[in-house]
Every structure is written in C-alpha cells, then in structure tokens.
Amino acid sequence: MVSTILSASHLHKEYGSGNTRVVAVDDVSMEIATGELVLIMGPSGSGKTTLLSMLGGILTPSSGRILLAGLDISSMNEAQLPAIRAAKVGFIFQAFNLLDALSARDNILLPAHLMPGGIKAAAPRADDLIRRLGIEKRQHALPGTLSGGEKQRVAIARALINQPPLILADEPTGNLDSQSGLEVMMVLRDIARDEGRAVILVTHDPRVEAIADRILWLEDGVLRDRREEQHQWLNCPVCRMKIDTWNAKIRHRAGQRELVFCTEQCKQKFIQQPERYMPAE
C-alpha cells in the first residue's frame, strides 16, 4: 500500500542576516510516497543540498514543517535528531564517505551499532545486502582498495542496513564512470520499487530522469514540478548554447515567434542584428 512517508510544508531556510542574508530554500512543500523515486534537479547553489539536509534531519528549517514517518522532525532538537537519522534515513553521498579504517563490511554495519541488537542482529541483513549488491568478494577490503562503483555500492548497503523508509542520495553518480553510474541508478530504482522505500535523489545527471517517478526543479530556493511535456531543449539563436525552454528566463518576441536566450548579452546582440541571428522556421 502506497502511503506518504515524507511530508514537507512551507519549508524555509535562510542563513545570515541583514545584508548577508541568504535564502537557501523558500516556501518548499512536497510529499513523497513509499516506493517513489524522486529527482531533485537544479543549478548549482540552488539549495538542493540544503533541502536534502533538512529532509534528512541534519539541518533545522528556519520555518516550516517536516513529517517523516509521522514524526515532526522540524521541531526536534539536536539531541533527538541523531536517533531519527539512524533509524529513518539512509544517506548516500557523491564522495561515498566510507570510513577508511574499516573494511567494506564494517562500513556497512556501522549504523547498526545504533540500533537494538547492534551488529549481531544486523549481520544477516549485511550478508544479504553484500550478496545483492555483488560485493561478496570485496567485503573485507578497505575502501582505499575499492573502485568508485564498489565504494558507492558499499555506501548504498550502509544506507540500507537499518532498513530506513527514506533514502537520501546526493549526486550518487557524480564520481562514477557512466557504466558504474548506471548500475548505481538501477540499484536505487530497485530499492524504491522492490523494497518500497522512498528515494530522493539530488543530481545533475540527466540520464537518471528516465528512471524517476517524479522530477522536481529547484532554483533560487523555490521548487517546481517539471513535467516532461514542458521540457524542450533549444539553441540560443546568437551563441548556439543549449537552453532548457522550461527553465529559460530571457525571452524575446520577434514577430510571431518567441525566442529564448542564454544571457542578456545574447538577447541584446539579437535585437541589434535580428536578421543575422533569426533562426530558420
């Protein structure tokens, strides 16, 4: 049965004050259901990691509310949040973030120390994850000897060891070659579809869009649903740079046609010499 595992309403996060005030996330609301794989995309500095950190109980929002598995984590204090993170959230990072001193298996079992029963109770689960992720032969290796893909699979197993209902992944394919990246994406898709966990992915990787149930676009701290039918790539008439029409802000009407430009400079160049840059119909 599909149910809402994460509900965020009117999230707002700002840093600093006065002239140095920066709004990182502005009035973001979202709901994520179990078994759903949601992509959060957007340009660098748009507030993706801030949003992810708030959803995972690392950062406290300036205002707004986050319900994770029915618990209001936005009102919890610093002492309460670690237990929530340990039990309810699995994190996957771009830099893998494995502990160098521990073997792959010990890294996977690390969060289990925080759960009742400890690593003893989690050992069969670890064996199962190691087998499913195809790292049996590398389970006793130190992270320094693993490939990028292997490291990320270890990190995924670590995120799953406590069976959290929510997985948050920050650019999980960012440091991987295309094949490894694809494999990791398939694993994340299976986690959502087969295990019924909610997966939120922050990524710049357009290949991931194909496996996502939903794509959210975050820009300047504001979140928007991005539907496929609104998604169209055009070239800037002046410099030929590719522009997403859905996201384009600099526009100009030339006769019956609406053109989009990458920058204001290109738009001005066009206005000065429209006959030179006017694209063919």
């Binding site: 993170r85 502990l99 670590r158």
Partner: peptide
Amino acid sequence: RRELAILKTVGFPN
C-alpha cells in the same frame, strides 16, 4: 573531521 561528520550524519550522537 570529515569522518566525524559522517558518523554524525549516520546518526551517532555527540
């Protein structure tokens, strides 16, 4: 420092 940050993220309390 980074590994301590990872431990905190994973859920280890101070």
